[in-house]
């Protein structure tokens, strides 16, 4: 299911892989991987803001998988200690880092995601910051387990507009991938 994702990660031959994990994500796994990612970048990059942005993007992406991936190990109605499938890949290209996450979603989810992400993608950094401020003050949408702020947080930190693809698996399942550049 993640072959295309891995191919994308592998795309730039000069890139060095910082981290790649595919499998089930839970908060405990995020804590552990988060530590590893942080240590790995602390060694390779002296730039504090870059490290902070990379860690933040990783957390937002990984927590999205835990909350929204269509492939869950835990029952659908369970609201905590969730465990869901996906992958996160971080690679380094010179001064830049490319970070990408993938997880299966339902066709219905994919339509909503596409709309949300296309809107963000069309925004300038100033507009992203404004929208972030607006959503921070807004009431949380009912279906959201977070604040709906996650994508905007990722977009704020990305040097280039966030990118996404949807790959059809079957009639009701699509693999959703989202990437950012730090």
């Amino acid at each position: 299911m993640y072959t295309q994702h891995f191919a994308l990660c592998d795309r730039a031959k000069n890139a060095s892989l910082i981290f790649y994990y595919a499998g089930y994500f839970s908060q405990n796994i995020i804590n552990a991987i988060g530590d590893a990612v942080r240590l790995r970048i602390e060694k390779s990059d002296p730039r504090g803001p870059v490290r902070r942005k990379l860690f933040s993007t990783f957390i937002e992406m990984a927590q999205n998988i835990v909350h929204y991936s269509a492939e869950a190990l835990t029952p659908e109605q369970q609201q905590d200690r969730e465990m869901r499938a996906g992958s996160v890949c971080i690679s380094q290209h010179g001064e830049e880092y490319f970070i990408m996450c993938s997880n299966p979603v339902t066709l219905e989810q994919s339509e909503a995601l596409r709309h949300q992400l296309e809107t963000i993608r069309a925004m300038s950094l100033d507009e992203i910051k404004q929208e972030y401020r607006r959503q921070l003050r807004d009431d949380v949408p009912e279906q959201s387990k977070g604040a709906g702020l996650g994508f905007l947080t990722i977009a704020k930190d990305s040097r280039t507009p966030i990118d996404f693809i949807f790959e059809k698996v079957d009639d009701n399942t699509v693999v959703f991938s989202l990437s950012a550049t730090i």
Binding site: R52, F55, S56, I59, E60, Q63, L136, R137, V140, K145, G146, A147, L149, G150, L152, T153
Partner: peptide
């Protein structure tokens, strides 16, 4: 030193 997006909302 770090808070994620959903914590930001609660802090607000």
């Amino acid at each position: 030193t770090y808070f994620n997006s959903s914590s930001t909302k609660m802090l607000f």
